[in-house]
Amino acid sequence: MTLTHYLTLGAIVFLIGIFGALTRRNIIGILMSIELIFNAANINLAAFNRFLHPQGVAGQAVALFFITIAAAEVVVGLALVLAIYRNTDTVYVEDFSLLKG
């Protein structure tokens, strides 16, 4: 196994996440796709740590920070989705036109 294998896996998961974030109509689907993107970044960080700098753990520490920030992001995001759903009664992003008046 070389570093290329892990980077390719990270790239594939990242692009699947990008595809989902661009095409899903459901706001929760977009949030799930963003979680996939975070995980692709974490795979890359852990792989770089293991292959290029095996004596340190800085890559894994940054990945831990990413996991924490992702948890905070998804909690606030889901609370916002619930608040928007209460006002607009829909989960489809093309109907979220509150700011247009």
Binding site: M1, T2, L3, T4, L7, T8, A11, F14, L15, R50, F51, L52, P54, Q55
Partner: peptide, 15 residues
């Protein structure tokens, strides 16, 4: 991304 990833094809685990 594949062009970037394939430039690391020589790096393997040493420890």
């Amino acid at each position: 991304l594949w062009r970037v990833a394939s430039s690391f094809s020589g790096s393997t685990v040493t420890t």
